[in-house]
Each structure stands twice: as structure tokens, then as C-alpha cells.
């Protein structure tokens, strides 16, 4: 049932870094998966498994060494600008411009990502209201607390109202309440019909949010499918046990 027309289509995607001291680093090896319209797809893996590298290739920040990936039918290597128009990318490493205000940041990304200029002010108002950042929307971002910055960062990701959202470990470093809030936002976006691809190393989070999960380990995808399907294949109930059993199988 995987088709090129799925919002996210990944086939044999590979990334090899060349590190001056370590030599070639095979961060991602021939992975493949698809995300279907309107689902939350989770990339589950430990630190160094290759999650960030995968998501960066899908958002065209990095070029794949081999293989293909398509976002809404656009090839990440051949039509990167179209891909970026259709994706919002959120990660702890995509920092905000410290000297701009929240409004200016949202406006900039709406405009440069191709959102209609005449509708941009309304879009900015909408996001400012949704994330409750009215009070500090006109303050320089470097004056904001980290909680406020995080809200602005999500609003920035959504600025051009993209159909696909990619979140790289969105809850990492957040306290429980903020993490719950982040999860609520993902659920809300899904309800709006967005396709969401997110990475995490937290089992409970994947278990709770994802329609389908891919387990990634040392650059390879060991298994993917719904939680039910993974349970059936391993006979384990908890995702933690499922995860471990796939890793042991691979070893």
C-alpha cells in the first residue's frame, strides 16, 4: 500500500558523513517508510540511531548520499524549495533569531515559505492567539524565557500552514507540563488533518501518540507498523519490550 503519492515517501535513503577523524560515518542506511495522510508517524530510536539525520534529509537541510525521498510528491534532492514549502520543521537545534520579535519571525517565515502576502498579517494574528503569545509578541526573542521561545518556535514552524510537519524530538528537555502541552499540540495538528512525522527516544510518547511507528537502530529501520502489528510480530505487549526484542534480533 505504500505509494509515491503518500505525503512522505522514503526509499533506500542513505546518508554517509565524512568525518576527518572517524572516516565515513554511515548514519542512515537504505531506510524506507511512508507516512499516510493525516497520521502521526513516529521514528523511535536511541541516541545516535540516525533520527536527526533522516529528518534533516527529509527537510532538505542535508542532501541524501543515495536513495530517494519525496514530500507531497516532490523529490528532496531535485525540488528542495517545493519540499520546504510543504514542510514545517521543528527541532531543538533550529533556534530563533534573537533580535527579531515573535511577530516578525512568524511573518518572515510565512512570507519566505510562500504564504500569500495579503493573508500573512491574519495568519500571524491567528498563531499569536493560538499559542497565547500576545503579551510578548512584540518583544525581542532573546528577552523571552525558554518556555515562551518554544511556543514561538512552534508558531514559526506552522507559519506557512504546511500540510506536513516534522518534529525532531520535540519534547526533549521539556518539563512534564510542557511536554504534555507539546503532545497536545501534535494531537491538535493531526485533528486539523496535518501529516506528522516525529522522532523520539521516549517509548511512552511513541506509544501514546503514534498511529504507526518505525524502529530505527544504527541507521537501519528494524521494523515499522502500527503498535498492534508490532505486538503481534514480537509477542510482547509494551513498546519497550518490543523495541528491545527487535534490537536483539538484529544483533
Amino acid at each position: 500500500m505504500t505509494t509515491v503519492n503518500d505525503p512522505v515517501f522514503v526509499k533506500d535513503l542513505t546518508k554517509t558523513y565524512y568525518d576527518e577523524s572517524r572516516g565515513p560515518v554511515h548514519a542512515v542506511r537504505q531506510i524506507g517508510f511512508t507516512c499516510r495522510p493525516g497520521e502521526i508517524f513516529g521514528l523511535l530510536g536511541a541516541n545516535g540511531a540516525g533520527k536527526t539525520t533522516t529528518l534533516r534529509m527529509l527537510t532538505t537541510i542535508l542532501k541524501p548520499s543515495a536513495g530517494t525521498a519525496k514530500i507531497m510528491g516532490y523529490d528532496v534532492a531535485e525540488e528542495p524549495v517545493e519540499v520546504r514549502r510543504h514542510v514545517g520543521f521543528y527541532s531543538a537545534t533550529t533556534a530563533l533569531y534573537p533580535r527579531l520579535t515573535a511577530r516578525e519571525t512568524i511573518e518572515f517565515f510565512a512570507r519566505i515559505n510562500g504564504y500569500d502576502a495579503s493573508r500573512t498579517p491574519a495568519r500571524v494574528d491567528e498563531l499569536v492567539e493560538r499559542f497565547g503569545i500576545e503579551e510578548y509578541a512584540r518583544a525581542r526573542i532573546d528577552k523571552l524565557s525558554s518556555g515562551m521561545k518554544q511556543k514561538v518556535a512552534i508558531a514559526r514552524t506552522l507559519a506557512h500552514d504546511p500540510p506536513i510537519l516534522v518534529f525532531d524530538e520535540p519534547t526533549v528537555g521539556l518539563d512534564v507540563l510542557n511536554a504534555l502541552e507539546m503532545q497536545a499540540i501534535l494531537t491538535e495538528l493531526k485533528a486539523q488533518g496535518k501529516t506528522i512525522l516525529f522522532s523520539t527516544h521516549i517509548m511512552s510518547e511513541a506509544e501514546k501518540l503514534c498511529d504507526r511507528i518505525a524502529i530505527i537502530h544504527e541507521g537501519r529501520i528494524l521494523a515499522s507498523g502500527t503498535l498492534e502489528a508490532l505486538r503481534e510480530r514480537t509477542g510482547a505487549h509494551y513498546l519497550e519490550d518490543i523495541f528491545v526484542s527487535f534490537i536483539q534480533e538484529a544483533a
Binding site: I61, V81, A95, P98
Partner: peptide
Amino acid sequence: ERSTWETTLTAATD
């Protein structure tokens, strides 16, 4: 240094 390069690179422009 401020880690905003990646942010800039997500902009949908050449």
C-alpha cells in the same frame, strides 16, 4: 554560533 543557520536553511527559497 546561535544555531540559526539550520532555521534559515528551512526557508523555502533557493
